[in-house]
Each structure stands twice: as structure tokens, then as C-alpha cells.
Lab assay of single mutants.
Amino acid sequence: HNLTITQGKLFFHYNPKLCLSEIHKMEEVSGTKGRQERNDIALKTNGDQASCENELLKFSYIRTSFDKILLRWEPYWPPDFRDLLGFMLFYKEAPYQNVTEFDGQDACGSNSWTVVDIDPPLRSNDPKSQNHPGWLMRGLKPWTQYAIFVKTLVTFSDERRTYGAKSDIIYVQTDATNPSVPLDPISVSNSSSQIILKWKPPSDPNGNITHYLVFWERQAEDSELFELDYCLKGLKLPSRTWSPPFESEDSQKHNQSEYEDSAGECCSCPKTDSQILKELEESSFRKTFEDYLHNVVFVPRKTSSGTGAEDPRPSRKRRSLGDVGNVTVAVPTVAAFPNTSSTSVPTSPEEHRPFEKVVNKESLVISGLRHFTGYRIELQACNQDTPEERCSVAAYVSARTMPEAKADDIVGPVTHEIFENNVVHLMWQEPKEPNGLIVLYEVSYRRYGDEELHLCVSRKHFALERGCRLRGLSPGNYSVRIRATSLAGNGSWTEPTYFYVTDYLDVPSNIA
């Protein structure tokens, strides 16, 4: 807008934040220059609390790290170098490059900038070799853009010569660093050979998330399962459950009422301010606690030095998902009996873990797994792929695949051998790939016309006998059925096997 004052003059007093240069501009645009008398524009009460600059400061050096910015700028000295009290560095987070010096300023003089007072450097006698002032900004957020400017702080001049310097606002972004852990990993099994893994992005990506790394490792069953005799009275049979499938998407929606109208769909109840505040506090606490764990609990591995020492970490090797089922080394339970199943799973520490690289999504279907087997899954978020990966501390989750139908069934015939004193040795093959492992066998036998009897055969007993022995049988026709019990439950009964026990007292003698 054009402003013209045809008559009258300007009068400025007691404006401590208004620089004289701005008042002189007002004289020019209003056409009143030359009308004012000496005392109409006070030299001592206008701009006496402001830094009124008329020179431009330029930054000469900028260096960044993930949490620091090192700045240096060209030296500046007023005509009387004693008038320079120091520099004021202003900075704040700036997602967009549209910041002005006066953003967030209120009537009390406060604003949204963080201000650092910096002492002037030592003055050199040689004007050509003056030290460049600077400042190291610490405690910054990774991968965050900051708006920065600097200006001088000078003393009051009796001659009211307006001098000083100020830089333009520059924008500097800190470097990326390792992201925080992925949030809320959930693993479920939808079949006997697959596990579905879902997660949420890290709360602090500290860069642009480029991919996720998912490692999985087959877990050995508890050692007590191999040692305890679950045929003993009072000892509860062990059981394991597989990871249940995901709930429906509708039930997972946030901010939804727990109660549904019987007449149909209901609208979600909005969260109160107290609920939102509580969630923010919980989120802040979780982030602080995660940072504490990362800094205190997890110790970084030592990389190899120039002395030739090897990095103890196993090298990563990509495998196809079809090879995942046989990740671990199978060892027989008892070496003397080769027909026992290889369900003991000690994992070799030198073995390469299978892994998958996930790009542009937060889910993965891990296939080719062994049925009813526990897996430990390790999830890392990465925001750099080359020249070397920059990934987060791992988040861990466990899951067990679903049982395989008929995996616990005894394959092959049940054979028998009759000894003296009416002892019958029953023999059968253990299931080759049971659900988890076989903890015991149930032997059901009966003599024709009598009630059915049951015998429990422990895992250890089966390994020693290759089956079991029935003792003290009365003469007669017998039928026997056997079924295995694994961590997933009972298998199917075998087809009945028949044998006849004679009275050993009636056996004919070869003595003449």
C-alpha cells in the first residue's frame, strides 16, 4: 500500500525493539523526510534493546553428524571492536523451508527459537588472519532439518551509529543413524509349514526405512522333555500350542467401542483428552525405555581390526524358502538304536541362519518350516543398504507352526516275539517326523474274553527296548493296539495285532 503524509511529521519514542533503520525507511515511504526535528525521533529510546544489523554474515563451514552440527561463519568486528559482546545463534526444527525470524513471537518477546549466546573469538592483530567464530550444536535429532541463523550482539553506541551483522536463515539436516526397533511384532501360524509375521514401523526411523531383515531359527525343545518319565503317576503330560491366527481386521481397528449394538453396526467412541494424553505418555515412556535398553543392555560386537582377528559373527547367506525346513542338525536320541526319531534339535552355532529381506511392506510369510516346531524370529529395521547396512537392534518374537495331521501315527506293522515265561516283546517304529517329539506310547492289549488293559511306555523305555515287553501273560489269544502321544496330543491307534500265548508248562520236552 502507498502511504503519503502531505502535512505533519513523524514522532517515535520509547520503541526499544524498533531499529532506527526501520524508522528511516518509514520517513522515505511516507514522504516526511526532512520535516522531523532532532528530538522527534529519539536516538536513545528507539532500538536500544534490539540488534540492528546492516551487514550480512556468511557461514564459512558446515559439518553434520547424526546428532551434531558444527558451524563456522566469517569474522565480524565493528569499528570499535570492544562493542562486540558476542553472537546469538538461533535454531529450531523446520520440516519445511518457510521459516521466518519472527515465527511464534508474542507480545512478551518470546519466540519459538532456541538461542545460544556465543563469546567472540580472540581478536588477531592481523586483519587478514582473524579467527572464524563458530559453535557445535549438540543433542539434535537424527535425520531432522533445522533452520539456523546467527547475528551479532553489540553494545549501545553513544554516537548512535547503527552497526551489526546478521546471516540469512539456512537449512541444515542432520545425518541418518540406526533406527529404533520395529514396533509390535506379531507372529502367527496359518499352516503346519508357515508363519505369518506382521509389525509396525519404528517410532524413530532416523532416516528413510529402506528394508527390513527377518531372521528365523528353529528352537530346540526343553531338555526336561527328553529326561522326564511322563508315565509316572502324578506327572502331567506336557503340551505345546501353536500360535493362533490373526483376529479379523475389524476387531483390530483402534479407537473402536468394545460393545456392539445388537441391531447392527455401531460407531466408534472418540477417545477423551485424558485417554489420548495417557497414550502419549505411555508411548514416550516406551521410547525412553527402549533407548535405555539399547544403550545399557546391548553391547556392540567388536569388529575385526587390522591384526587379522576374525569377526566372530557368522556370515549372512541367503537361502531359498524351500530350504528352511531342514535348518537344524538332527541327532538321534540314543545312538545305539537307529530307529528312534531325530527330534532332539541342538543347533550348531556355526550354522548360517536363513533370512529374508523385506522391502516396502511390514509383513512376511515364512514358508518351508517344520510342522509343530518353535521358531525364534528376529526382526531388524534398516535405513541404508549400501555401502553397508545400517540397521536397528533386533526385536524378537516366537511362534510355533501348526501340527501336521497323521504325523504322530505309527507307520509300519507292530511285530512281536514270544519268549519263555510268557513274555512277549512288542516292537514298532517311532514316527519319523512327529509333531514336536514323542513323549510316550500307549499300549492297549486284551486277552479274548477279558477286559482291555493299558500300559504306558516312556520315551526312554522305548529307546532301550525298541518297544516294550509284556510279562506274566496268561495263555490265550491276544490283540494289541499302540498309539503315540506327542507334544500336540495323541496320534491314531494302530491296526490290531494278534498273537497267541501258550502255557509254557505244557511245552513238550526233548528229553527222552
Rank of each mutant, 00 (worst) to 15 (best):
Q275W: 11
V397W: 05
G472S: 08
P300Q: 10
A309T: 03
L369T: 04
E465A: 09
P387D: 08
A335H: 10
V299L: 06
D323I: 13
T401N: 01
E378V: 11
N490I: 02
D291Q: 12
H425E: 13
G264W: 11
D291V: 09
P338C: 09
P238Y: 08
K236T: 06
F226T: 09
G476M: 00
G374D: 10
E217M: 01
E465H: 11
Q384A: 02
D409S: 09
S304V: 10
N255D: 09
L455S: 11
T272I: 06
P338W: 11
E221N: 04
R353E: 08
H454R: 10
T210G: 07
P434Q: 06
D323V: 06
E221A: 01
Q380G: 06
N255G: 11
G489A: 12
N295H: 04
N339C: 08
E404M: 13
Y292R: 07
L280N: 13
R318W: 15
F289H: 09
V331D: 13
P238V: 04
C269Q: 04
K271Y: 06
T497A: 08
C391Y: 15
L293C: 05
L379T: 04
P349L: 08
G449K: 07
V480K: 00
L232V: 10
K357T: 08
E452L: 09
Q380R: 04
D250N: 15
Q252R: 09
E495V: 03
E281T: 09
L379H: 00
S320Y: 14
V397H: 15
L280F: 13
G264M: 10
S344M: 08
A394R: 06
D229Y: 14
L321F: 13
E356A: 13
K317W: 04
S458K: 14
T494S: 13
T497G: 10
K236E: 13
N339L: 09
E224V: 12
C266V: 13
N490R: 15
T415S: 11
V299I: 10
T307H: 12
V358A: 07
A263R: 09
R483H: 04
Q219L: 13
C267E: 13
S305L: 07
T272D: 08
S315M: 12
E433Y: 09
C267W: 02
L487K: 05
T347V: 03
R286S: 08
S363Y: 08
G449S: 10
E282L: 11
Y445M: 09
F372D: 04
E388G: 15
E221W: 15
F215M: 08
T494F: 01
S305G: 09
N360Q: 08
A399I: 10
P300I: 06
S251G: 08
Y396K: 12
G412V: 07
N435F: 00
H461D: 14
V501I: 08
T485S: 11
S363M: 03
R240V: 12
Y504L: 13
Q275C: 07
V327S: 12
S304G: 12
Y478Q: 02
G374A: 04
A463T: 13
K271M: 07
E282C: 10
W216V: 12
L487A: 04
A394W: 13
V359N: 09
T241S: 06
K361F: 12
T307E: 14
C456S: 03
C456A: 02
G234T: 08
E281K: 15
I438S: 03
L277H: 12
T485D: 11
G412E: 07
Y448K: 14
K460Q: 08
V414Q: 02
Q384T: 09
S363R: 04
H254K: 12
I209Q: 11
E420A: 06
V393W: 12
V329T: 03
L426R: 01
V501G: 00
R376F: 14
P332T: 06
E442A: 05
D323L: 07
I366K: 04
S305D: 08
T485F: 05
H416Q: 09
R446A: 07
P403A: 07
T272F: 05
A336P: 11
N421C: 02
R316T: 09
T328L: 11
G207P: 04
E282V: 10
R376K: 13
V324Q: 13
N490D: 03
P338F: 11
N421Y: 05
T502W: 05
G491F: 02
Y498N: 07
G472L: 09
N477T: 03
P238T: 09
T415Y: 13
Q384P: 07
G472F: 09
Y478P: 00
H425T: 07
H254T: 12
T497C: 15
T303E: 10
F355D: 03
K406P: 07
C269E: 12
V324N: 12
G207Q: 01
P434I: 04
V297W: 10
N339M: 07
I276A: 10
R370V: 11
M402C: 15
L487Y: 12
H454N: 04
E417G: 07
I209A: 07
